[in-house]
Design a protein around this nucleic acid. Structure first.
Length: 706
DNA sequence: GATAGGTTGCTTTAGACAGCATGTC
DNA sequence: CTAAAGCAACCTATC
């Protein structure tokens, strides 16, 4: 274990100053090794090391020293919008060296060309992929790419994009950062990079299992240390044990419901725990005052937080999630019981991590529970141990059965994660990849497409197979055309690539719309939700029969016979009904109740349908289905803000949402002009301060139109 | 006859990226 | 292609 001093680093003094300002005195062993392997000289590296081993600083050293020497731009890519925002904030430190930092993702989006003003751009894999297709002028100035959380390459949904980005990025200088992977040698040689691999962690990790044995729980650590606790529930017993000793606990469960009930059970036992009621009351009030709709989860979280225990999953609104994460970081909340959301994502360590379930239901195969990937376990256990607070972290796997002990130790604790492999080997991903390269590169002949495709991680034979099929499929379906032996995107293909929708989504939309007359709102939503890009949502047994009755108008798609397809069809119908309620201005809490979804779910459905209505409208435009296009355009405006058509002019004003707009409209203020004309009335309706602000925004909007 | 506690049968099951216009976080 | 936990309705023992 070698720690390099900042003096030895031999870097520009301004770099040292920034690092020192953060309270960092020396480089840790991972960082030291990376520096020795040429990080500061712009050497191509693949760094695989555990969570919290200071990979971000390595990326910064790499980027900054490269920019100082070579000029140009650096792009830092992450798989999550939350990570993009987090990195953006840390990289702001480098503005003292006159490097301008920008970010671009679905959340915080900049105009493509505007990004030229930045030296460091933080973005997501999908956004970068999309940028490449739009070819903004500055992209050729980027000579350094940092590919963060590179193990996402192995994700079946998102991996293909990571790989496409890597294929393009590796033509330039790259630094790939990844969790520990077993086949790093193969990956680094594919990337043309040197590998830096260590298992060094800033806080040591003690792993073990905890087994339920009647009224007692047996804890067995890796180092053979054992411990017996009283209690008939292993999770509760060890959580209480940890809290008594002043630690925080992160519990993982594999369903939302279980996360909630486990949180309730722990909270019920918290009477004897040492809690700071004043702090918790303050947290509880933050939860109560959150201004995005929290649904009925809000009240429950309020009560739970008074006991220092909360649950956390994607059904929660963004505001609630943030409050919980911050309060845990502030060490006010003692326990979070979460679904896998918190395993990846932003940094949120705890002294103890309890992995409650080693199996997960597989939605594709009935009755089949698969063991969770080792990588996923490592991501969870990696959250154990807070630097500066804990001497070591503990990660415990809960076992229901004694005879699993050895197997679990062998598989999860003593082994490396599974190798990461290409996920491009299926029609949908590969065809998307082909569309992407033709979009970026312009016209290519067959040989050039071959060469390009062989840059992927995929085996040659598989590439060749999909290539033939892909080219003819894209050709037959009018995404591409052949001219002078070169393949180019058609107008339709170009549009699909720009919209960033899956080609199968585009084909579905085009095929149905081109042969049908216009239909009702519900039918459009249903069609969009039924595509591969549509939101998927669970449909309960009881809902299934009801859904068909609620479809009040003819849909574009006929009811399928196949059972699985029928489920997809009904799921899309449920999405359609939710979005229909949303644009009919049904109160948010009523929607959540009616469809038993969380407010986070509603937000994500609306977000996706916003994108898809926009895309649908433009696809209809290209195939000259003008009526469809016009209808979808109006729906898009309504979905964005959740309003009926008459409110569209009002919600264009920033600060005016569905509720304020309806209030104004009911009082005969129906346009931005009305607001400017009657500022006093607006103030009377919305309050002095808000009214004033909105009047200003309305004036700005009108000015912008002229 | 009320009630605590058990049994049976049925149901449900994680997460989160993308366009554009806006101002430029 | 190998399940498990929650929940409501019903059942049973006990006082």
């Amino acid at each position: 274990m070698e720690f390099m001093s900042l003096e030895e680093l031999n870097a520009d003094q301004r770099i040292i100053d920034v690092i020192k300002k953060r309270g960092i005195e020396r480089l840790n062993p991972v960082q030291t090794e990376a520096v020795k392997k040429g990080l500061m000289e712009g050497k191509r590296l693949l760094i695989t090391s555990p969570t919290g081993s200071g990979k971000t600083l390595m990326a910064e050293l790499g980027m900054i020293s490269f920019l100082l020497k070579e000029g140009g731009k650096a792009v830092y890519v992450t798989p999550l919008r939350a990570l993009t925002a987090e990195k953006y904030n840390t990289f702001k430190d480098w503005e003292s060296l006159n490097f301008k930092v920008g970010m671009s993702s679905g959340d915080y989006d900049s105009d493509d060309e505007w990004l030229r003003n930045y030296d460091i751009i933080v973005t997501t894999y999908e956004k970068l992929d999309s940028l490449w297709r739009h070819k903004p002028s500055w992209l050729k100035d980027v000579n350094y790419f940092v590919l963060d959380e590179f193990h996402y390459l192995n994700d079946s949904d998102r991996g293909p994009v990571v790989e496409s980005v890597a294929v393009r990025a590796k033509k330039k200088n790259i630094l790939a950062l990844s969790a520990t992977i077993s086949n790093y040698a193969k990956i680094s040689s594919w990337l043309g990079a040197d590998a830096v691999t260590t298992n060094w962690r800033p806080v040591p990790l003690k792993e073990g299992v905890i087994v339920q044995d009647r009224r007692k729980c047996q804890v067995i650590f890796q180092d053979n240390l054992t411990l017996t606790l009283n209690g008939s529930d292993a999770i509760i017993a060890y959580t209480l044990y940890t809290i008594e000793k002043g630690g925080q606990v992160l519990v993982f469960r594999n369903s939302r419901k279980m996360a909630e009930t486990t949180a309730r059970k722990i909270a019920a036992e918290m009477e004897k725990a040492p809690l700071n009621d004043k702090e918790l009351l303050e947290v509880a009030n933050r939860i109560k005052d959150v201004d995005d709709a929290g649904g009925n989860e809000k009240e429950e979280l309020y009560n739970l937080s008074l006991k220092g225990v909360v649950f956390h999953h994607a059904g929660l609104s963004k505001g609630l999630r943030e409050i919980i994460e911050n309060a845990f970081r502030e060490r006010k909340l003692k326990v979070i019981v979460a679904t896998p959301t918190l395993a990846a994502g932003v940094n949120l360590p705890a002294r103890v991590v309890i992995v409650g379930d080693m199996y997960r239901y597989n939605r594709k195969i009935l009755g089949y529970q698969e063991e969770i990937p080792i990588m996923e376990y490592k991501q969870m256990s990696g959250r154990a141990g807070r630097p500066g607070y804990d001497d070591y972290g503990e990660s415990l796997i809960v076992l229901r059965n004694k005879r699993d002990i050895e197997k679990i130790f062998e598989k999860y604790i003593l082994s490396d994660p599974e190798p990461i492999e290409s996920r491009l080997g299926n029609e949908s991903s590969f065809y998307t990849f082909l569309l992407g390269i033709l979009s970026t590169e312009g016209g290519l002949n067959k040989n050039e497409i071959y060469d390009y495709s062989h840059q992927t991680l995929l085996d040659r034979e598989i590439v060749d197979d999909y290539l033939e099929k892909g080219i003819s499929w894209l050709n037959e379906n009018d995404f591409i055309e052949e001219r002078d032996e070169k393949f180019r995107l058609t107008k339709f293909g170009r549009k699909v690539s720009d919209l960033y929708v899956n080609p199968f989504t585009a084909k579905t939309i085009r095929d149905y719309l081109s042969r049908a007359e216009t239909s009702c709102e519900l039918a459009y939503f249903h069609l969009l939700a039924y595509t591969p890009d549509g939101p998927s949502i669970g449909v309960s047994r009881a809902e299934q029969d009801q859904l068909i009755d609620e479809a009040y108008c003819p849909l574009f798609i006929d009811e399928p016979d196949d059972e699985d397809e029928l489920y997809e069809y009904l799921s899309a119908l449920k999405v359609a009904l939710i979005v229909k309620d949303w644009i009919d201005e049904v109160d948010e809490d009523i929607i959540l109740e009616r469809y038993s979804i969380g407010s986070g779910d509603l937000r994500s459905i609306v977000e996706t349908m916003d994108w898809l209505t926009y895309s649908g409208s433009h696809i209809a435009g290209v195939i000259e289905a003008t009526e469809h296009s016009r209808k979808l355009e109006i729906l898009n405006k309504r979905v964005k803000d959740g309003v009926k058509e008459d409110l569209i002019p009002l919600v264009q004003i920033s600060g005016v949402g569905r509720k304020r707009a309806r209030l104004l409209y009911n009082n005969k203020i129906t346009t931005p002009e009305d607001i400017v004309m009657n500022p006093e009335k607006v103030k009377a309706l919305l309050g002095q301060k808000i009214g004033e602000k909105i009047a200003k925004e309305a004036a700005k909007l009108i000015a912008g139109l002229h």
